[in-house]
Every structure is written in structure tokens, then in C-alpha cells.
Design a protein around this nucleic acid. Sequence first.
DNA 1: GTTCCGCATGAATCGATAG
DNA 2: ACTATCGATTCATGCGGAA
Lengths: 306, 306
Amino acid sequence: MVRYQTQLKFPLPRKRDHDIVPKRSNISSKYLDSIILGDCLDILQDMPDNFVDLVVTSPPYADRRSKVYGGVKPRDYVGWFLPISDQILKVLKPTGSFVLNIKEIAVNGERLTYVIELILQMRNQGWLWTEEYIWHKRNCYPGKWPNRFRDAWERCLHFTKGKDFSMYQEEVMVPMGDWSQSRLKNLSETDKIRDNSKVDSGFGKNVSNWIGRDKVYPTNVLHLATECGNKNHSAAFPVSLPSWFIKLLTKEGDIVLDPFIGSGTTAVACKSLNRHFIGIDINAAYVDLATKRVKSKMEKGRECNE
Amino acid sequence: MVRYQTQLKFPLPRKRDHDIVPKRSNISSKYLDSIILGDCLDILQDMPDNFVDLVVTSPPYADRRSKVYGGVKPRDYVGWFLPISDQILKVLKPTGSFVLNIKEIAVNGERLTYVIELILQMRNQGWLWTEEYIWHKRNCYPGKWPNRFRDAWERCLHFTKGKDFSMYQEEVMVPMGDWSQSRLKNLSETDKIRDNSKVDSGFGKNVSNWIGRDKVYPTNVLHLATECGNKNHSAAFPVSLPSWFIKLLTKEGDIVLDPFIGSGTTAVACKSLNRHFIGIDINAAYVDLATKRVKSKMEKGRECNE
DNA sequence: GTTCCGCATGAATCGATAG
DNA sequence: ACTATCGATTCATGCGGAA
């Protein structure tokens, strides 16, 4: 197999003294911040054990995107995925997490069962099924059928290697409900603009603290819209989704792996949040697109859709 | 490499005498609009086949409410429920639906698997797993844990006996999103007229679809609040939940069964919507409470929390 | 500079048609 | 009988041009 590796040269985040469990040798650091072309099964087999802090991915769904990917049949799906999840188990640190975004399709009026069978089989493999988050898609695909409504949710299955894993809950706290919103609405437009600019320049901290006091822990239901109208890339996976889990489950400088990187959404999220990424994809056009998108991200700074 | 063959070969659904649509004899009508004390397994065995239009229920979850109910252990849950779902399959009409509100609990940092195992086993039993609705609990139970957030959703599993079942989608249509109000209300009168005239010529078809339309079909994600502050009962199950499925899946005069009626929520919903109810509970205090609640409902009319 | 509106675009699903 | 492709259905969102 042709192994085409794109090594992007990004400045490493500031050194911190609280890591490092495995010392980052030359062999292991070659993976950092790169989009790798190849079958993730092969790539993962060569990767060091206990190396990655978080795996977050949205694999091709059964019978979808068959032109780009192979088009895995529903009845082959579990058998196709289990060897991959086995390799993920190997490269993940003991305190790491695996977040799997997936949804079963409906065929002939019935939901197929390969996703829930996969959960059971991954438990046999050694995974802990820690939690199931719901991604509520505010703008779901339209359509009308006699026997069902539009499908507006997907699973974000959270697996870990053990009971004790890293979780930084404060990083994803959200503003409180109506009360704080009405309070913020009453700020004048100029105030908001000024305060925003202050935050960027490191000033205006008092305002963000004031806002921070009205924050509350989220639940296991995420309300995010898909990104549909973007011209360069149309990711089924909005940046905000991996961003949320990256903030929740890693700290700055950690390593995040996406074995089905697609258009590079997870890598873009990592760059915004000062985490290292490792992206893998079997499709050369996607590797190209993801590489370009991350480079553009580094040049232009923060993207709007984050 | 281990090859796992998914999509197990399930036996075909048992043949049932679907042709017999029972007339409402004395024997069968004795069940209507009553709350029955007893084990639902016994009661259902005596009930006529193909008798009920909808079964909607929220059974005791594993290890919850153990003082009131038996307190079924997680590892016994599937074995405990399967005989009941088998009886439900029997009493349900061929075009009927079974909506099961359930959520797995977390033990030792892990979500248990009895619910997804139950889905697989019920398919084995002959059920079609038609859809999984998500009930998003806007005000969920408070709490804070180091390894998980508050659980803000539950499954509403929709099972049917076949592909063709009754569904009245117009009954649960919802107001359109904000965007239409902010955009369409500002269309000038001439614009509306022009767009309407375009319909005849084949242009502007999609525009005309929105004119004069204020309702839209919902999705498979339900946003309902729990009822928290009621004095008599603390039902985890708000009236709005069975109400929604009753409107969607039955018409007036149809028969709705809840084999775990509890405080009588499903019966209350039925009385509001002019459907017949059959409630069963093994706990005498609950049968008492539900009976009183339905009587009070019939006297006082509509309840506030509906 | 705002706000407003036209338009394209989706990890969808079903039923019909064709090989 | 089983698979591959196609048309019809539907609605929230972001972008870009217009007012």
C-alpha cells in the first residue's frame, strides 16, 4: 500500500511540566499534527501503545458514502469495525477516552441493529461503555414518510479503558438558561464589541468572569447544528462536536486521534484548542482536503464556524 | 483475525391469527377504562388477542423503585421483561404500536446493557424495531459526578408487528421555527401574489409551499419537561409524553394499554384525548391512586400539567 | 454599515423501476 | 427474491447579493 504522509510543520504548544507518561521519542512524535493516508488498521498497528489521549471520530456509516469509502454493508459492519476498535484500545492511554459518533440507518421501515450489537461486542473486547451522549441535530435532513419522522439525533458513544479517566468538566460549562441570556441581551452593542476585543487582547477579564459566574454544567444532550452551506468542505460533523469532547476530555498539548479524519474537522478543532492531532484517512482526496484545511486554519487563525 | 458475523439470523415472527379483529363483546369491554390490580403477565394472558391499538408504558427500571415493585436486578431484567412483551405482542392489533419508555442506569461508572439486549431479544420475539425516539428532558434530575453529567434523555422505543401500522402524523404537527416568522412575515403582498401565480407556471413552487403554512412535522426528538412539583405524585412520566404518542398512533375511541400504569398518567392522557384506557399495576396503592386521579380528572376536566 | 431575502444544500427514507 | 439506481418529499441553516 502506498503510504503517503503529510507532515505539517506547526509550532508546538508551550512545554508544560505536568506530562509526560510516555516520552515522546522520534518514532512517536513523527505522528503528531499530520494527516496520514492509509487504512487506519495498518497505521494503528505501527503506532506506539498507550500513546493517545482521545480518539474522536465519525466513521462512514453503513451503506453511506459508498463512492468515497468502500460502502460497508450493514451486516458486515460489526465485523469490519471490531479490529479497528481493538487497535484503538491499544494506542489509547489508560486514562484516555474513545468517542464514537454514529447512527444506525433505517431500512424497510426498521432500524438496523448493528450499532447496538457493536456496543455489546466492544464491551467483550475490553471497553467500558461509559456513557451515551445524544447529539441533537437542530437542522436535520428534510423529508416525509408515512411511517417515520425526520431523524434529528445521533449517538456519541463514550468508551473508556477503565473507571478512572481524564475529564475536565469545567471546560464545557454553558451559560445558564433564560436568566443570564436576558441579562446579556441588555448589554449595549458597543459594550459587547468592546468587551470582545478586550478578551482577545487579554484585557476585559472581569467581564468574562462576570459571565462565568452564570455558568452551569451541561447535560449529556448536545444541541448543535450541522454545517451545510460551506463551500469548500461540507462536513457532516460540525467542528463544534469534536471541539466539545476535546475540551471535556483533554488538556492543552494532549494528543487526539481521528482514524476517519475526512475533511479534517477534528484536526481543525485541535488547532483551535492547542491540542496535537493525528488524522488518518484511506481516501487521498480527503487527506489532501484535510491538509489544506488545517494549513488554511493556521494561516487565517480562528475560523468562524467553531 | 476474528471474523464476527453480525445481523444474527432471527427466526421469522410467529404466525398469529391477524385476521380476527375482535368485536367488542362483554368479555372484552369489561377491560375498558379500568385500572386493574394484578401482575400484568396474568391479566394479559386472559385478554383477547389483537385487542389493543397502542401499548405505551414506562416500566420500573432495573434496581429503581425497588420498594414499590420487586426491584428487578439488571442481570434479570431481559428475562423478566420478555414474557411480558410476548403477551403484549399477542394483545396488540396488527396495525398497533408498542412504545416503551426506558433508560439504562449507570453502575460502577458504566452504562448497563440490558436495554439494548432487550431490543435484540424482542426482535427475536417477532417485534419490528421501527424507531427510537429521544425524550429530551429539559429539566432533568440535578446532581454532579466526577465522570458524567446529568442524564437528560430517555429512550422511547417504538415497536410494531409489521411495516404497516397506524400513524396520524398531522395530529402532532408543531409550529414552524423562528426563521420563518422573521423572514416570511416581511414578504410584501405583491411578493406573495407573484409567488402564488408562479405556481401555475411551475416556478416558485417551493416558495408557495411556505405561504400560509404555520405548522411543520416534528422530528424523532421530543422536548418535554418533567413534572416536578406535583403534590400527589412524582411521576417521572409527564402526561405530555403518552399524550404525544397517543395522538400520533391512535384515533378517538381506540384502546390504549399501560401494563405499568403507576400513578395513572397514561389513563389521564387517554381521558383528555377521548381514548379508552386499560391500566394494570401490581401495587394496590398505585391502583388506588390512579383510579382516584382518573376520577378527579373526569370531574375537573383538563389538568393543568398536560 | 446595517438588515433582509433568495437560494443551495445536506450521514435521510420510501417506493417504484430496472437488471 | 435480491440488489442498484432514481425521483419525490421536506426544512433549518449559512452565504451572498440587494435594499
